[in-house]
């Protein structure tokens, strides 16, 4: 144990790994896990399944981002997902994304750019050295995680594309394949999912295109093979399984704005003082912290105010939510 950092849990309270595994085995043997598939039909019987690991990413650089944070366990990051293309319940994407094909994959770069092109994954992975970034992720629903992403700064791709002087916004359009995405068959949202950033937000060094987490390639339920991560904004801004990146002059209507403009704005910056119309945003539940833990206060810009505050200087953030 590090000096000066007291353990927040007594060793006697920790369930030994063997006991824990044995309990899980007992539960499985009793067939309780067998009802997991039912959860897709009836949430009253919902139960998460374990998600398998992905191939490791051979080379990436560690960074100092978030190294003081306690990581959310891999199983939680990969089984508690909002990815409506694979179902609207949190445990569904991990179950329903299996059929989705992520190879081969390419991203079309289009719109107000000098170098419109199609980027395949090999080329994308070579745009900049892969970095690990440990970021807090705050969902608009009031929960949060700490995730060690692996990715490249989005700015590397933008520099390659060379936006024209008209380009003010960057749109991210994600996969919508009814054959392998069960959620796309229902009109829950206006598919395909579209998210967008202002060009300066997109160029910000914190904004990344993630291709992995926990040193492994992204699982499909987390947005394989490539997704956006903007740590100071609510999680829904981070489009998953991106197929098109379009530069535009006008602010686009994003999918969630079209679904409920009074509830989801274009900026969606994490802000404890601006409540969602239906719930407070003042605090959040940290996933993986266990049953008997309190909510923690939500931080302005999710704790990245120092880095990104100047992007919104002079703006009324209650209006531009």
């Amino acid at each position: 144990m590090l000096i000066g950092k007291p353990a927040d849990i007594a060793p006697s309270e920790i369930t030994p790994v063997e006991t824990f595994r044995r309990r899980r085995e007992i539960v499985k043997a009793l067939g309780l896990s067998a009802i997991a598939p039912l959860s897709t039909a009836w949430p009253a019987l919902a139960q998460a399944e374990d998600a398998p690991h992905q191939p490791p990413i051979k080379q990436f650089n560690k960074t100092d981002f978030g190294k003081e944070e306690k990581l959310t366990p891999y199983q939680d990051v990969t089984t508690y997902n909002n990815f409506y293309e694979f179902g609207t319940a949190k445990e569904q994407p991990a179950v329903n994304a299996k059929k989705f094909r992520t190879t081969p994959w390419s991203i079309s770069i289009e719109g107000e750019v000098h170098k419109a092109q199609t980027l395949d994954m090999d080329k994308l992975l070579k745009l900049a050295p892969l970095e690990e970034r440990i970021y807090r992720m705050r969902c608009v629903e009031g929960w949060s995680m700490v995730i060690p992403w692996v990715g490249i700064p989005l700015s590397a791709l933008i520099k390659l594309a060379q936006p024209t002087s008209n380009a003010k916004y960057v749109e991210f359009i994600t996969a919508a394949e009814p054959d392998s995405m069960i959620g796309v068959r229902a009109p829950i949202l206006d598919w395909p999912y579209l998210e967008a950033l202002r060009l300066d937000e997109a160029m910000h060094p914190l904004t990344i295109l993630a291709v992995g987490l926990y040193g492994e390639y992204l699982p499909k339920q987390n947005g394989a093979p490539v997704r956006l991560v903007v740590p100071w904004k609510y999680g829904f801004k981070g489009g998953k399984s991106i197929v098109r990146i379009r530069f535009s002059e006008r602010m686009p209507q994003t999918t969630w704005m079209r679904a409920a403009a009074n509830e989801y704005g274009f900026y969606a910056n994490v802000n404890p003082k601006v409540a969602h119309p239906r719930w407070s945003q003042a605090s959040e539940r940290r996933i993986g912290s266990g049953l008997f833990t309190r909510r923690i206060p939500t931080q302005m810009f999710n704790g990245y105010a120092e880095q990104v505050g100047q992007l919104y200087a002079g703006m009324d953030l209650a209006k531009n939510f």
Partner: peptide, 27 residues
């Protein structure tokens, strides 16, 4: 009993509080 069992065997998932709230509400 199912909730107690799942809780005891740490099978309440990533967000156990939400799980219990949703489950008791649904039933």
């Amino acid at each position: 009993l199912r909730l107690l069992w799942l809780g005891f065997s740490d099978e309440l998932g990533a967000n156990p509080v939400e799980f219990i709230e949703h489950s008791t509400g649904t039933w």
